[in-house]
Amino acid sequence: MSEERIQQMAAALAERVGGEVSRDNNQTVVRVARERIVEAATILRDAFGFQVAEDVTAVDYWQRREPRFDVVYHFFSYEHSDAITLRVAVDDGETMPSITGVFPGANWYERELFDMFGIPCGGHPDLRRIIMPYDWEGHPLRKDYPLGYEEPQFTFNFDEIQARKVQGKR
């Protein structure tokens, strides 16, 4: 896991797909345009030997930034122990190209993106909700989705909350 090697690869990748390299604490981040993510993933796999999309997730910058989401990919190579992070900015309603064709392991992660953030992945073989029930409304990990806090039952509101519960038969 030599730092130099990863920097070189990141720079080479950024040059080929028109990205921008930065350093974020312990990650080497390449910011890539949405349309070129599949191309970038293919280059990572074929030219630099990355074998797995270790993690795919997103961050919601609601009311802080346009475009609204950052999809964050973490790629890893078992052979050289290289780790690289790709970030892609996506706006609400835009479709993220699916990388399942390149890294099949991203399958469930992309379904999770769709489920929890409402970012659809175009070309995904099985885009359904994965964690929430099928009839769930909304996407829980969006910042505009409430946490769903419920009041704890104390003495002063005991009766009110008790009324919502199933009463015992005895």
Binding site: D24, N25, N26, Q27, E54, D55, V59, V72, A83
Partner: peptide, 20 residues
């Protein structure tokens, strides 16, 4: 400000935390 990604070996495999 910033983000970090740290991986450990859990009994089941690579467990990582991503914090922004």
């Amino acid at each position: 400000k910033g983000s970090a990604y740290a991986a450990v070996e859990s009994p089941r495999g690579t467990l990582a935390a991503f914090i922004e």
